[in-house]
Structure formats: structure tokens, C-alpha cells
Nucleic acid binder design. Sequence first.
DNA 1: TTTATTTCGGATATTTTTATCCTATTTATA
DNA 2: TATAAATAGGATAAAAATATCCGAAATAAA
Lengths: 144, 144
Amino acid sequence: MFSKACEYGIKASIFIALNSYQEKRVSLKAIAKEIASPEAFTAKILQDLARHNIINSVKGAHGGFEINKKQISEIKLEQIVKAIDGDKIYNGCGLGLHTCDENHPCPVHDKFKDIRNDLKIMLETTNLEELALDIKAGASFLKI
Amino acid sequence: MFSKACEYGIKASIFIALNSYQEKRVSLKAIAKEIASPEAFTAKILQDLARHNIINSVKGAHGGFEINKKQISEIKLEQIVKAIDGDKIYNGCGLGLHTCDENHPCPVHDKFKDIRNDLKIMLETTNLEELALDIKAGASFLKI
DNA sequence: TTTATTTCGGATATTTTTATCCTATTTATA
DNA sequence: TATAAATAGGATAAAAATATCCGAAATAAA
Ligand code: FES
Ligand code: FES
């Protein structure tokens, strides 16, 4: 469904958000450990998220990653997915036709579009805050 | 969502079904042309589907691929997807945890499982016959 | 100002997916 | 029986995704 890069990006963002509530900046190393992801690969993804202004990176000693506390509840999964995987999950045809077009539908178009739309709505309405709170409450997990 | 192999497998199966209704066996070449897929790669996928008894292959002159007419309405998309992509689409965690487990959910589990279940139901209830009929009626397309 | 820490970013490596090539095998028919 | 037409399947190649390495740049603190 999502690429590995996107999975890491989502999990990392949640962990960063969680720490940002406590004014704590987290290092790449801490993130990779917490979400069980390869460090260098995760670094690339974090750079990408920083370039998209989803997270903030601070270089140098005592540097790391953080998210503006006030923005956490405004950041939707959709932004992360679009930043990393692009919007093919929204516009792509389920059977790989060049474009998903109501006027030139593939055989599964009608059945597929509803599911894809539900996914779209889910991504557009889910924000980082709620996900971080679940982790904090021990109601969900970032690894294993 | 689906792998390229799976997309080709679904489209090929629909085209084979369509022809099998008219007692026509279709060649690899004809299939690849009709669904705009690479011939040799498509051959591998068809072999896979044949091994899974979803389609039937006939070697030699006047050979090709066909589906037992009476089975066309019984073949569900689910069988094709499972044969090619396996069942990770059913059991896999949306964020890549080892297993999707209600008791050890990832942050998006609750929101994800409903969408995944809708997809599952769609695949389990959609059969080749209805898809082939749409193609025949010009209501859907296999390429471009 | 030096040092330790940490992200940045380019280059490279590995793995997986997608695609191609070639020979063997099977089968209908001339 | 010889030939042509097809699929089967192993080997290989190309492309994309995933992962690693390393030096450069930035920054805090000694
Ligand atoms: S055309 Fe294939 S999903 Fe819309
Ligand atoms: S645990 Fe991640 S989708 Fe169920």
C-alpha cells in the first residue's frame, strides 16, 4: 500500500511529534531506534520531510528533529504520504492505465474508486496529534 | 496498490475470459498486445496463473490460454491477487509491523483495517464474468 | 578556537521488481 | 515424419526501491 520510505516517514513523524509536545528534540539515531528503521535511509526521508516543511531539522550539537507544537494537530497523514510517495495513490489507476478517467475506466474502476476515496478521506482527516496521543497512551505501537 | 505483475494478471485473465466465452483460445502475443504488457514478462505471470489452476494453458500449434467457461463466474479477483501478490494485502500491517495484530496495533490500525477490509470484500466478491461483460459492452477498457 | 555532535548530501551498494533472451518441449498439420 | 507454431522455464539484464558509506557543513560547549 505505502512504500517502506512512507511507512518510516509516518512513524518517524509520530515519534517526533510525541517528543515535541515535551519540547524535546530527537536525533536521527533515537528515531531510527524507536521505529526500527535503517538509520541512513531514515535520514534521507527526514531530509525530505524537512524540505516539505513538515518537520524541522536542526544541525549541529544538540540538534535533531522537531515539529512546531502548534502545528502537530494540523499536519495530516496526507501531507506525509504526498511528500514521500507522491499522489499516485490518489490519481493512479488500480490496474495501471495511464490515468484514472471516469470516461475511460479500467475494469475495476467503479469498485476501486470508492475504496481509494475512503483511503483518501482517511489520510486527509487523520492528524499527527491523535496518532501521537495513542502512542503516548500505550494504545498503539511504532515497532515489532 | 497492486504490483505490475498483478495488474497484468488481472487484465490478462479478463481478456482470456472474454474469448473463452466464444470458445476462442488466445495466444500470449494477442494477450500482451491487448493489455499493452511486455510479452515475456506476461508469459511468466500466465504460467503462474496456470499453475494455480486459474487459467488453462495449451502448448503447441493452435495452443494458447483459456478458462473453462463454466468457471469464469466463479473466479474471483481475490484468487488472482493471492496467486501473484500473496496475501500481504490481507494480513499485512499498513505501517509495516511484522503482523497486523489487534492486540499490538500500529498507529493507523483502526483506521486502516476498515479500508483494507473493504478492499478484501471487493476482491472476494468481484468475479471475472462481470468484468469481462463490461469490456464486451465497451463500458471499460484494458489499456491506455 | 578547538572539539564533539549532529544533520546534509553526494556516491555507492544491495535487493526486489520488472523485463528480456534463448533453448527446450509440446502439438497440429502438411 | 518433418515443420511450424506455441507455451515452459532457466538465465540474464535493466530499472526501481531500499540501504549504506563517508566527507562536508553547522552548531553548542569546553
Ligand atoms: S481507471 Fe482504473 S481505477 Fe479508475
Ligand atoms: S497493526 Fe498496522 S494495520 Fe494493523
